[in-house]
């Protein structure tokens, strides 16, 4: 439970940067809050506002965000083995199935898996949404370019990528190269989807 709460603080700061990034991309404060309430998976949310903010189509933005959210489905399959949930609670469990709740649940002692998952998921949900509101409201009061918010979003994506680099650096490098090649050739948003092809060599190899 203590780990969930300290994680909550870190998530608050991340949520505030999402709120700010959404406003920079042209979302209203209400729209930024709706994304956090309904989508509730950080990397996908950042991807959506980044693609739309760069002038990408709705289809490209939604596709990037949903593909990034695919890993939550894998988390859910792993969690259902350890946490039995029935009925309407299953919908709630699904919505709070994210990186943080899965990490805490799968690294807690077996007797605490249940508590770790629910506490972390619900704490992060509340903190994430409150901090999105604070970040979005503050960002709408300033000039985003003058305070460097656009640069901060790039660094935020790097921060999300960082812990994955140890295992997946070849795929990340491939994705980066494909995106660089695709930027001049395709409309905004499409380079991110093209980069997804970088996983194919790893899937074909056994």
């Amino acid at each position: 439970m203590r780990r969930s709460l300290s994680l909550g603080v870190a998530v608050g700061l991340y949520g505030a940067s999402f709120g700010a990034a959404a406003v920079v991309a042209g979302f209203s404060v209400v729209q930024a809050c709706a994304v956090s309430l309904l989508v509730f998976t950080g990397a996908s949310q950042f991807a959506l506002v980044s693609v739309l903010g760069a002038g990408g189509s709705v289809a490209a933005g939604v596709a990037s965000a949903v593909l990034l959210g695919g890993r939550n489905g894998l988390y859910a399959v792993i969690l259902k083995e350890r946490i039995p949930v029935r009925g309407w609670r299953r919908a709630v469990a699904a919505q709070i199935t994210i990186d943080e709740s899965t990490a805490i649940a799968t690294t807690s002692p077996p007797a605490w898996t249940h508590v770790g998952f629910w506490w972390t998921g619900l704490t992060v949900y509340v903190v994430w949404n409150l901090s999105t509101l604070v970040g979005a409201a503050s960002a709408s009061a300033v000039d985003p370019a003058a305070v460097g918010l656009d640069g901060a979003v790039g660094a935020a994506f790097l921060g999300l990528l960082w812990p994955r680099l140890r295992e997946a650096w070849p795929v990340a490098l491939g994705g980066a190269v494909l995106a660089l090649v695709a930027v001049p050739l395709t409309p905004p948003g499409i380079p991110v989807l093209v980069a997804g092809l970088a996983v194919l060599p790893a899937l074909v190899r056994r």
Binding site: D150, A168, L178, V183
Partner: peptide, 26 residues
């Protein structure tokens, strides 16, 4: 594999587009 590797490819691409892209130019 697809579910664990895809985020790395997409996040790397988002770093690139967020930092180097301006519309269709680098």
């Amino acid at each position: 594999k697809a579910a664990t590797l895809l985020p790395a490819a997409l996040l790397a691409a988002l770093v690139i587009t967020q930092v180097f892209a301006h519309g269709r130019s680098l």
